[in-house]
Every structure is written in C-alpha cells, then in structure tokens.
C-alpha cells in the first residue's frame, strides 16, 4: 500500500465521521442521477414489452437490418435486391398513384368467398361422414380421387366453363380449403372418447343435443387445425390463381412486376402476402384460444 493511499484512507476516516452511509455527492451529479432514474422509470413499460417480445421479433428485425446493410454496402445489385427504403417508396407509389387497395380488395374478396365456401362444405361433409360410416363410404371414393388433383389443375377447366371470374377463383380456393377442414372434422369426430358418449346416453341425449354439447366441442381442437391450415392454403391459392389468369389482384401485381422487372414491387407484394397471412393466423389463433380456454395443454 502506497503512502498516498494511506493518506487518503486517513483523510476519509477524519473527513466523514458522522454519516458514513449517506451519499451526498456533487449537487450537479445528484440532479443527473435523479433525472436519469426518472427517465428510465418512464420508459420501463416499453423496455419490459421489448424484453417480452424480443424473442419473437429478434429474427425478423435481424433480417431487416441485414437487408439494409447489404444494400447500403452494395453487396447485391438493386435490380436483384432493392433496399428496404426503395421497397417502402414503391409501396407508397402503389398505394397512392396506383390501385393497390383495389388489387388487395379483389384478392381478399376471393379468399373470403373461397374460404367460406370450402370451410362450410368441409365442415358439413365432415360432420356427416364423421357421424355415419355409410356417408363416409358413400363419399369416400369420390372425394379421395378428387383430392389427388391439385387445385391448380382445375383452373383451365374452370376457366373454360365459367371464365376467369371471381367465382372461378373462389371455387378453386374452396377446393383447396375443403379437404383439410373435411378431413380434420372427420378425424376429430371419430376421435371423440366413447366415455363422453356414454355419459350423454345416460342422460338420454338425442342426436342433435349429442352433436351440439358433446361431439362438436370435443372435435373443435381438431376442426380448428383444419380451419387454420385451410386459411393458409386459401391465401396461397389466391395468389397462384391470380398469377395464372387475372387482370386484378395481388397475384396479378406479382406477374406484372416480374414482366416489367420492378423488383421493388415484387417485394411490396411479397411482404403484404406474408403480413396478411400472418395476421389472419394470429386472429384465428386468438379465436381458437378463446373457444378452447377449457383446454389445459402442455405449456411449453
């Protein structure tokens, strides 16, 4: 220990004898300290939210950063990979100077119509086949053969029969949605435990009551798997349908951007497709969690 240190120690001992624990400090430093504390307290909820969601958003934000850096540093030619800013400008241009909203609306209407058509038919057929082996056997062969032909393969025929119309595209989407909903409904109903059916029979439930209070609630988790999968398929199918034969819609925008080499527009449409698909799934999951709140599954 140096002489200087010993001197310091000695000074400390003599200088702060009364209140050794209370830190007074420089008047200015104290002010800054409290100002920083207050500022931190104000943004605390924001920080907590960031921390809460950081794992969900770390990868997308990282990809966005890498994208920006790669264009800033000219790693890739802009015609192959335009920067995020260019894409944002293109989005604004499409929205204000062109008919992005009209195209979006066209796609959305087709999806909603097609999804409703496929989901309702899938649900009804699934319930029918689930409740009766005769119905299942009667429809089984036909449906299984139909299922093997992908939605897109029907498009030329549909166009020949009814033209490139809203209806043709909706039918195609409906076909895509039908099978996951049908199969999951059927499987969900067949998986209902016999134990619950026995309880209902003891209380003399008729078919309608049994379906409403026992079979459908029990099959609901499985039905929702079908609906969510079907919603994803519907959104994917509408894009492809529009790419192949349409003068309107997000799929049409993709084809047009490709032909005119407007790479930024391609990105705009791709981001919209991804974001909307994501939001639809989030919404469906919210509904599902609400309907299935009785279910206590593995928390993860």
């Amino acid at each position: 220990m140096s002489a200087e240190n010993i001197q310091l120690l000695a000074r400390n001992v003599s200088a702060v004898p009364a209140k050794p624990k209370e830190y007074v400090g420089h008047p200015n430093t104290a002010g800054y300290y409290w100002r920083i504390r207050r500022a931190l307290a104000k943004i605390k909820p924001v920080l907590a939210l960031l921390k809460d969601k950081s794992l969900d958003w770390a990868l997308p934000v990282g990809i966005l950063l890498l994208w920006e850096i790669s264009t800033q540093l000219h790693w890739v030619k802009p015609v192959f990979l335009p920067g995020p800013r260019e894409v944002a400008e293109s989005f604004y241009d499409l929205l204000v100077n062109q008919d992005l909203l009209l195209d979006f609306r066209a796609s959305a209407i087709e999806v909603v119509l097609g999804f409703s058509l496929g989901a309702v038919l899938g649900l009804l057929t699934g319930i029918g086949a689930g409740l009766s082996h005769s119905v299942e056997r009667f429809l089984g062969t036909t449906l299984n053969a139909f299922r093997q032909v992908p939605p897109l393969a029907w498009l030329p025929l549909l166009v020949l029969w009814i033209g490139i119309s809203l209806f043709a595209k909706s039918v195609m989407i409906g076909k895509a949605v039908f099978f996951p909903v049908f199969l999951n409904t059927l499987q969900g109903i067949r998986g209902v435990s016999k134990k619950y059916i026995e309880v209902a029979s003891i209380f003399e439930y008729n078919q309608a009551l049994l379906l409403r209070r026992v079979i459908l609630p029990a099959a609901l988790p499985s039905i929702f798997v079908g609906l969510r999968y079907g919603a994803g398929l519907a959104w994917a199918t509408v894009i492809v349908a529009e790419m192949l034969g349409s003068r309107v819609g997000l799929g049409f925008l993709l084809t047009r951007a490709q032909e005119m080499l407007l790479t930024a527009q391609l990105f705009v449409v791709i981001v919209i497709i991804g974001a909307v698909g994501y939001l639809v799934d989030v919404a469906l999951r919210k509904i599902e969690n609400n309907l299935l709140r009785w279910k206590k599954g593995f928390a993860g």
Binding site: K195, Y196, E198, R213, V214, A218, L220, L292, W294
Partner: peptide, 10 residues
C-alpha cells in the same frame, strides 16, 4: 364412473 367423466369444455 371411476374417472369423473366431467365434460372438460363445460
């Protein structure tokens, strides 16, 4: 029954 067989969604 040996198991309660309450309907979990009710």
């Amino acid at each position: 029954f040996q198991e309660h067989r309450l309907l979990p969604w009710l």
